[in-house]
Design a protein around this nucleic acid. Structure first.
Lengths: 215, 215
DNA sequence: TCGGAACCTGAATGTTGACTCATGTTTCAA
DNA sequence: TTGAAACATGAGTCAACATTCAGGTTCCGA
């Protein structure tokens, strides 16, 4: 965790990160422990002492690395955003077209949620604990997504439409599917779910036109 | 608030509700104040004394009507669920078919969110404060929705598909649209949003088949 | 008119937990 | 080897509530 982008780690500390190897190790332990604790007990039910105990360091050590409880939380949200984007862009990177990309994206997303339940919860709770971080998370997401749709639309792979609205609807759909089938019903068959979901996103609810149905 | 179903109000009090008119008035004041405070400051940032002051009653009075802070919160979530379902079923009640119902439903939902921002926030926060109430909220919702889809499917108004998955995808889409265009961008043109969203849900992203496109 | 039920109150209690700080210990460049 | 920067620590401080309770006040049927 947190080794993805130096810039994020930097924002985590007052001025630049830890100077020594020992320091970097401790920081990583704290971030991992915080992710685990926040993710399972929730922000308000997690005490700093829970985190430091879980990390195996003294209570005071926490404040060597973070200004406040909220600050770690924000760092985790940003980290989760970077990871999710990475996982998604990987999963989609060699899709032949946008429709196929949607299918793959949904599947990858639900799988990702399922295998990162704790961090996923953190993102959701950010809506109330760190609203700005939450909005930033979805803003970044939606901007990239909208661009994808606009390009696909230009290539004729998808119909024209209000991409801003579409993006939010699609993100919402994925989010809820992640919650329902990634967290709550985590025994569900992800393949079937993403198949059905992709079908809905691609073809909609409307009845299929029958062959030779000119009307 | 809370005058919708006697059964909910009953669950709110230890044994049956207030006996006198004065009592009923006080209860209503407390519920309204709690909705307002929780909705704007959030659950954890709201103190019982905030609620009682806002309601214009003494601190102790709160505990005449509720066992705990969490209890009012749950009551509010249930109340919001009943209201939302009511608003939606009203808006959809004379739709000629399911596709039109989807369009109307989305529009009504975003409008409802926009005009009940505080209570809407409470429902979302319930995910962390009262998870069981949150799941119940969506369970009730999804069951009714799924039935609607199944019937429409039988009538041939929509295609066949995995309704369980579809329902969650559609609820997610509406929820996010409500968040984005009902709360965050509350100046957006709801008509345009619901139009675009309904188009997505009905026709999907796939390019429109051109006239005489038999392939 | 009276008594008890229903209702109201806010000071006091007790707990919880974020954050500070004075005092070490470790690391490492000179 | 050494001193200062970096790191580690946990007891103690302090403010913020949720909830209780003992002592009222108001209402209403008999």
């Amino acid at each position: 965790m947190s080794q993805h982008s130096g810039s994020e780690a930097a924002a985590t500390e007052e001025r630049s990160g830890p100077k020594t190897e020992r320091g970097r190790r401790t920081l990583r332990r704290l971030l991992d422990a915080a992710g685990e604790e926040f993710g399972t007990r929730g922000y308000h039910e997690t005490a700093i002492s829970n985190i430091t105990q879980s990390a195996g360091v003294g209570l005071g050590t926490f404040y060597v690395y973070f200004k406040s409880k909220e600050e770690v939380f924000k760092a985790l949200v940003a980290d989760m955003g970077a990871r999710t984007r990475h996982a998604l862009s990987e999963s989609v990177k060699d899709a032949p077209n946008r429709l196929e990309a949607e299918r793959l994206g949904i599947q990858a997303y639900v799988e990702f949620v399922r295998s990162h339940k704790a961090l996923y919860r953190i993102v959701m709770e950010a809506q109330f604990v760190a609203p700005e971080a939450y909005r930033a998370y979805y803003r970044t997401f939606s901007e990239a997504y909208r661009q994808q749709l606009a390009q696909a639309s230009k290539r004729g792979e998808i119909s024209d439409g209000n991409d801003d609205v579409r993006v939010w609807a699609l993100m919402g759909a994925s989010t809820f599917l992640g919650l329902k089938f990634g967290i709550w019903d985590d025994a569900a068959d992800i393949g079937a779910v993403s198949e059905a979901a992709a079908d809905l996103m691609i073809n909609g609810l409307a009845p299929r036109a029958k062959k030779g149905d000119a009307s």
